[in-house]
Amino acid sequence: MIELARAFNAMVRYQQAERLDSWVAAAKDTALAGFADGLVRDLAAIRAALSLSWSTGSVEGQISYMKTIKRTMSGRAKFDLLRHRVLEAA
Rank of each mutant, 00 (worst) to 15 (best):
M1V: 15
I2A: 15
I2T: 14
E3K: 10
E3L: 10
A5K: 07
A5T: 13
R6F: 10
R6W: 06
R6Y: 11
A7D: 07
F8W: 01
F8Y: 03
N9T: 14
N9Y: 08
M11H: 01
M11D: 00
V12M: 02
V12N: 02
R13G: 05
R13F: 06
Q15C: 07
Q16R: 08
Q16D: 14
E18W: 09
E18Y: 10
E18T: 04
R19K: 11
L20A: 00
L20C: 00
L20Q: 00
L20V: 02
A26M: 06
A26C: 05
A27V: 03
A27I: 04
A27L: 05
K28Y: 06
D29A: 09
L32D: 00
G34F: 04
F35T: 02
A36F: 01
G38T: 03
G38E: 03
G38H: 02
L39D: 00
V40E: 02
V40S: 05
V40F: 03
R41F: 05
L43D: 10
A44M: 04
A44R: 04
R47S: 05
R47Y: 06
R47I: 00
R47A: 02
L50G: 03
S53R: 15
S53N: 15
S53F: 15
W54C: 07
W54V: 07
W54M: 06
S55L: 14
T56D: 11
G57F: 09
V59D: 07
I63D: 11
I63K: 12
S64Q: 13
Y65Q: 14
T68N: 11
T68R: 12
I69F: 06
I69P: 06
R71G: 14
T72E: 09
T72S: 10
T72W: 04
M73L: 15
G75L: 09
G75K: 11
K78V: 12
D80G: 04
D80L: 01
D80T: 08
L81G: 12
L81W: 07
R83D: 11
R83F: 04
H84W: 09
L87V: 15
E88M: 15
E88Q: 15
A89L: 06
A90K: 05
A90N: 12
